[in-house]
Design a binder for these strands. Structure first.
Lengths: 109, 109
DNA sequence: CTTCACTACTTGGTGATACTAGCTACCAGT
DNA sequence: ACTGGTAGCTAGTATCACCAAGTAGTGAAG
């Protein structure tokens, strides 16, 4: 997309990935692919991997190495309890923001 | 609020301010006050001023200096044509993101 | 008349985040 | 041997909001 999307993703991409992981565990390459399918066509692979390292370091996910038939072993991430709490906070924050924005959009027309 | 909100505001605060200006021209101090009323209690003044400088530099707004009875002269910003186009793009981008997030939230429960 | 409070704008430095642009490595098919 | 798909990693860059402090003007309180 463009610069606007890039900036908007700051702060939300983390929540998006956590939300994906809340459905079921997944590994980086898979998450990137799913994002692309969902319309986030130009999210760089490197971005996702860096984000995964970060949320692991912050203790929001657990990791398990699983061998793959095609290529190097996968690092499968799964949301843990602190991760779920963090995701809840994310939805609250997002809800507040979406409310304000929705209101502003109404006023603007 | 917290770190999540800070990060989420990146990219959206600009749109929020442009949306405020799309209703009618305003100056920095006024915009800050209005944001606080609207629930963005802890947006730093410096942040708003820096943002205004940026959108002026990017040619999205016009500026007019207006004397004030109380304090230094006000710099009144008004949205120009490129600014309105940019705001349109912002709403499109926001709409896309809000859609995806809404869908993800559904799947997650 | 000096201090305080409110109005109004400015500036330098910091931290967090996504992007760019590469790289390593494993496997299958041509 | 080479290509393409799978899978993960890294260094450097740009952008953005925040923090902290400062500059100025006005009016009211002491």
């Amino acid at each position: 997309m463009g610069k606007q999307m890039t900036e908007m993703l700051k702060g939300t991409l983390e929540g998006i990935v956590l939300a994906i992981l809340s459905v079921r565990p997944a590994y980086g390459y898979e998450i990137t692919a799913r994002l692309r399918e969902q319309g986030f066509a130009d999210i760089a692979e490197g971005t996702v991997y860096a984000l995964l390292v970060r949320i692991e370091r912050n203790g929001l996910v657990g990791v398990e190495k699983v061998p793959s038939e095609k290529g190097p072993p996968r690092k499968v991430y799964s949301l843990n309890v602190p991760g779920r709490e963090y995701l809840e906070e994310f939805w609250t924050t997002w809800g507040f923001l979406a409310d304000r924005l929705g209101q502003l959009k109404e006023e603007g027309k």
